[in-house]
Design a protein around this nucleic acid. Structure first.
Length: 276
DNA sequence: CGGCAAACCTGCGAGC
DNA sequence: TGCTCGCAGGTTTGCC
């Protein structure tokens, strides 16, 4: 499901229900997601207080009062849903739940089970195998045109595919890669190493503005994304090209409209006239 | 090392 | 109605 804006939205929703709260109950309903839960996972969550909640790339990091971190990745279809801690049985694809000292329940539901969870000491964060290779946060001031240009040197693959590489910049997925390139007027199949300094500047600006606007809209709700309170995001209404094959592209008079191609097995949407 | 297809898993909509 | 096919917001693995 979720790219950076959706994960950020989920984080903010979770903070409301979980930050500062004691977990009076924790349970799992199967042994694994994309990979097995760490040993004694639920037992180690139960009785802990959640101090703060943060995001790194598409990962959520929940800091516990014993110095450990609960790491969550939503995969393609993961959702976190907040409800009352009643006696309702777990629904289909509900895999994890926690209940707080305020009588609220947070349920992790994930039909495709591409998500994952882990538990590790906060001190080990910078060495965590899933986190240590990640590139810069796109919304950080440290993500600059110079940093992007440097990362593209020697990369002959298409710029769209390179934007999905989490070691280049962390958090962009299939939707926002197409949207950012449209906004920066760069063709998705341009070899990354041919992107000029000027284009790199436009691209960084486009990435930051698209992600910022998407966060403000609560992310994009296509199939699976829900905010933890059940509300939908609405940035999907603002897509210029994503999933709009054949439709006229905004601010453009080309006859063809939005085109779709497949790159590295994933759909890319763009305008052949506006993007160069 | 780079690049790409396949794999992981389920659901849904389109087309017949 | 019901079946099959293709596609889905991510990441890892294995093969050239």
């Amino acid at each position: 499901m979720p790219e950076l804006p959706e994960v950020e939205t989920v984080c903010r929703g979770l903070a409301e229900a979980l930050q500062g709260r004691l977990l009076v109950r924790a349970a799992t309903f199967r042994a694994d997601l994309r990979r097995p839960f760490p040993p004694a996972f639920a037992e180690r969550l139960q009785g802990r207080r959640i101090e703060t909640i943060a995001r790194r790339a598409k990962y959520m990091t929940l800091y516990l009062d014993d110095g450990w971190v609960w790491l969550i990745h939503l995969g393609m279809s993961g959702r976190m849903l907040i409800g009352p801690a009643d006696d309702a049985p777990p629904g289909k694809h509900d895999h994890v739940l926690v209940e707080t000292d305020q009588g609220r329940r947070v349920t992790y539901n994930d039909a495709r089970r591409f998500g994952l969870m882990d538990l590790f000491p906060a001190a080990d964060m910078s060495n965590h195998p899933l986190l240590k290779g990640l590139g810069p946060e796109p919304l950080d001031d440290a993500f600059t045109p110079a940093v992007l240009s440097r990362a593209l040197v020697g990369k002959s693959g298409p710029i769209k595919t390179v934007l999905l590489d989490q070691t280049v910049v962390a958090g962009i997925g299939n939707i926002y890669a197409s949207e950012s390139l449209f906004r920066a007027r760069i063709l998705p199949d341009r070899p990354a190493e041919t992107i000029t300094g000027k284009q790199s500047e436009r691209l960084v600006k486009a990435i930051k503005s698209v992600l910022t606007e998407a966060i403000a809209a609560g992310g994009s709700s296509l199939r699976d994304h829900r905010r933890p309170n059940g509300e939908l995001g609405y940035f999907q209404h603002a897509f210029a090209v994503y999933d709009r094959e054949g439709e006229p592209c905004p601010g453009c008079t080309c006859a063809e409209g939005v085109r779709r191609i497949v790159q590295a097995g994933r759909s890319t949407f763009f305008c052949a006239k506006r993007q160069k």
